[in-house]
């Protein structure tokens, strides 16, 4: 067996039949650990790298497992017939996959060498060398841009956005992967026309952009906060209405000049 298949990493879930994160029917591998602490995060159990426990429907569940690339691939390969029919494949998500660069790269490489297409959802929050190292194995990059204002970005996610925006440019310029920009639309954070317009402008100036996605805020992660003994900071913020999303979509389309859609 090739050595890189033994690379170990930490994941907290593998979700098959995902149809909103990249082309076709996909298997998402969720890597544990994140650099950001977004208030609206729907996977709060992904944030810390350490293995932890969470209450799920009254039962204690261990979150986090150390696995090899080979072990992950055994599951990923199970849906090969579906990938072949739909152009689907493996998607890495998190957390932030770039926090485990060696593991993430090895996973993408293993998939690609087996003829399975690859995608990654990521904020691009890592040194450029890390990103550059995995681009040869990545077919689709689903890159988050959450806000253009560094201060506001820092206030809501814990980190400023300069590095991520810089990386977005470099990824786009490399032409090595199909790049889509994904914007979580969070009421009270970035849901004004001006804020979406600013992101769309930036997106429009990037090279080789495939698509821009507006992902409406949802509350499906709310119970997990209680399960982790944490407070849900979004309180009772309502998801944006369909009308609001349509309005923002129009702005995004007009400003960016690229294909835009609501949802993944």
């Amino acid at each position: 067996m090739e050595e890189y298949l033994k690379t170990k990493g930490r994941i907290f879930d593998i979700q098959r039949y995902s149809i909103h994160d990249g082309n076709g029917i996909r298997t998402i591998v969720f890597l544990k650990g994140c650099v950001l602490r977004c208030r609206w995060c729907c996977n709060p159990e992904s944030q810390e790298y350490r293995i932890q426990t969470m209450m799920v429907q009254g039962k204690t569940k261990t979150i986090g497992e150390d696995v090899t690339v080979e072990e992950v691939m055994a599951t990923v390969q199970k849906d090969r017939p579906y990938y072949r029919r739909t152009g689907g494949g493996l998607t890495l998500s998190g957390g932030e996959s770039l926090c485990q660069p060696e593991f993430a790269t090895a996973l993408l490489r293993a998939a690609q060498e087996r003829g399975i297409s690859t995608a990654m959802e990521s904020m691009g929050c890592a040194k450029w060398e890390v990103i550059e190292g995995l681009l040869p194995y990545l077919d689709q990059y689903l890159l988050d841009i959450k806000h253009m204002n560094p201060a506001k970005h820092k206030e809501y996610t814990g980190k400023s956005n300069e590095l991520m925006l810089e990386n977005a440019k470099k990824i786009a310029a490399s032409g090595m992967t199909e790049l889509s920009i994904r914007v979580p639309v969070i009421p009270g954070f970035n849901d004004t026309p001006e804020e979406i317009r600013a992101i769309a402008e930036y997106t429009g100036r990037l090279e080789h952009i495939k698509r821009m996605h507006l992902l409406p805020y949802h509350r499906l992660g709310q119970d997990k906060y209680a399960g982790l003994g944490r407070e849900y900071l979004m309180g009772d913020v309502e998801p944006p209405t369909n009308e609001k999303m349509e309005q923002l979509l129009q702005i995004a389309e007009q400003t960016s000049g690229v294909e835009c859609q609501i949802g993944g």
Binding site: I19, G24, I25, P81, T86
Partner: peptide, 22 residues
């Protein structure tokens, strides 16, 4: 939502075909 849009339809058809492939 699993069948929304053209992409949803394509994935749905793909799911059936993959089951039938097997």
């Amino acid at each position: 939502s699993a069948l929304s849009g053209r992409r949803g339809l394509e994935n749905f058809v793909g799911l059936i075909q993959s089951y039938f492939d097997q």
